[in-house]
C-alpha cells in the first residue's frame, strides 16, 4: 500500500516539475527542446501500444507521423482552415488511413507485418516527396500557424506552446494508463504473448488488433500535427524511416511494453543528443550498438531493468513472500505490469 502512495507521489512530483519547468529556466531553447521531446513522447506511446503491448512492430509510424503533420499543414496553410478544426480533421484523416492500412496490414504477421509496414512507410514518404503539386515536395511546407487563441489564451510564445503540448502529453499518458490497466490492455498483452491462445479463449484478435493499430496511428498523427504547429515548417524528411528508428530507440531505451518507458527513454536520449550536439550526425555510432545491446541484455529497457531489480530486492527482503499469500505475489506482478515472457521462436 505504501508503494502505491509512493508511486502516486512520484507521478505528482513529475507533473509539478513539468508544470514548473518553464518558470525555472529563462532559456527558451531549453523549453524548445523539452517541448519537442514531449511531442516525440506522444509518438513513442503510439509505437509502444502497438509494438510493446500487442507485439506488432510497425515501421510505418513515421509515415503516420508525417500524414498527421502534413494534414494539419495543408489544411491550415493551403485551405486556410481554423487551427482547431484542422487539428481534428488531421486526426480524422490519419485515423481513417490507419483504419484502411491496418485492416490490410494486420492480415500479415510478425516478419511480414514488419516488412509490409516498412514498405508502406516508404511509399508514404515517396508520395509526400514526389507529389509536388500538393505537398510542395522537397521544398516543404512553410508558415504553419501556431494554435489559434481560445478566448484570452494565446499560444504564440514558447512557454504557452510548452503547456499546450504538455496538456496533450498528459492526456495521452492518461489514456494509455486507462487502456493498459483495463481489460482491453490485458487483452492486448494476451495477444502479444500468444495470439493462438488468445483466440482460443474467445478474444476477437482481429478487432482488438485493429483498434490498437488505429489508436497508435492516432497518437502518431497527433504527435505529427503538434510537431507541424510547433516547428512551423515540415519537409518530406519527417516521413523517412530514420524517424521511426529514432522513435524505436527512445522506446527501447526507456522500456518497450512499459508505461513510463517512453518518457524515460525520450528524455534521456533527447537530452543526451543535445549534450553531444557536435556529434549529432554520428549519434547512431553510440545509439545503434546501444539498441542492439539493450535488446540482448535488457530487452525491457531501463524501466524494465529497474522493475526487475526492485522485484528481486523485494524477494530477497521477504524470502517467504511467495509462500505467504497469493495476494502479495499478484501485487508484484501488477508492479512489473507484465511478466517478461520467454517465447520460443518458430522454426
Amino acid at each position: 500500500m505504501t508503494n502505491v502512495l509512493k508511486q502516486r507521489n512520484v507521478v505528482i512530483i513529475l507533473i509539478l516539475f513539468a508544470l514548473a519547468f518553464p518558470m525555472m529556466t529563462s532559456n527558451t531553447y531549453m523549453i524548445h527542446v523539452m517541448t519537442l521531446s514531449f511531442i516525440w513522447m506522444i509518438g513513442v506511446y503510439g509505437l509502444n501500444l502497438l509494438a510493446g503491448y500487442t507485439g506488432y512492430l510497425s515501421l510505418a509510424h513515421a509515415g503516420f507521423f508525417a500524414i498527421g503533420a502534413y494534414s494539419l499543414g495543408l489544411l491550415t496553410v493551403k485551405a486556410q482552415m481554423n487551427f482547431w478544426l484542422a487539428l481534428v480533421l488531421a486526426l480524422v484523416i490519419t485515423c481513417s488511413i490507419g483504419l484502411v492500412v491496418g485492416a490490410i496490414a494486420l492480415r500479415t504477421k510478425e516478419h511480414f507485418f514488419a516488412i509490409y509496414t516498412l514498405c508502406l512507410g516508404y511509399i508514404i514518404y515517396l508520395v509526400i516527396d514526389k507529389w509536388d503539386s500538393l505537398t510542395e515536395g522537397v521544398r516543404g511546407l512553410i508558415g504553419i500557424p501556431a494554435p489559434a487563441p481560445i478566448g484570452p489564451i494565446t499560444f504564440e510564445t514558447e512557454k504557452a506552446h510548452y503547456y499546450f503540448v504538455l496538456f496533450f502529453l498528459l492526456l495521452v499518458v492518461l489514456i494509455m494508463y486507462r487502456i493498459v490497466h483495463s481489460l482491453s490492455g490485458r487483452t492486448y498483452i494476451a495477444i502479444r504473448n500468444s495470439e493462438d491462445l488468445a483466440q482460443t479463449i474467445g478474444i476477437s484478435t482481429k478487432t482488438n488488433k485493429l483498434t490498437v493499430f488505429v489508436l497508435s496511428t492516432f497518437f502518431a498523427g497527433l504527435s505529427g500535427a503538434l510537431y507541424a504547429s510547433f516547428v512551423r515548417f515540415i519537409g518530406p524528411d519527417i516521413g523517412s524511416t530514420n524517424i521511426v528508428f529514432d522513435l524505436l530507440t527512445y522506446l527501447l531505451v526507456g522500456g518497450i511494453g512499459t508505461l513510463s518507458g517512453p518518457i524515460v527513454g525520450t528524455l534521456l536520449i533527447v537530452w543526451l543528443s543535445q549534450l553531444l550536439q557536435d556529434f549529432q550526425q554520428y549519434r547512431m555510432l553510440i545509439f545503434g550498438p546501444a539498441l542492439t545491446l539493450l535488446i540482448i541484455f535488457a530487452p525491457r529497457g531501463i524501466v524494465g531493468a529497474v522493475a526487475t531489480w526492485n522485484m528481486n530486492r523485494k524477494l530477497k527482503k521477504y524470502p517467504n513472500n511467495q509462500a505467504r499469500s497469493g495476494r502479495s505475489r499478484n501485487d508484484s506482478l501488477v508492479k512489473s505490469e507484465i511478466v517478461p515472457e520467454k517465447q520460443v521462436k518458430e522454426g
Binding site: 510478425e110 528508428f245 539498441l291 535488446i295 540482448i296 530487452p299 521462436k345
Partner: peptide
C-alpha cells in the same frame, strides 16, 4: 527471444 527482438537488434546494427 521473441521474434520482435532480432528485428530491433538488426535495426541497431544497421544504424551503427
Amino acid at each position: 527471444a521473441p521474434p520482435i527482438h532480432d528485428k530491433i537488434a538488426a535495426i541497431g546494427i544497421l544504424l551503427f
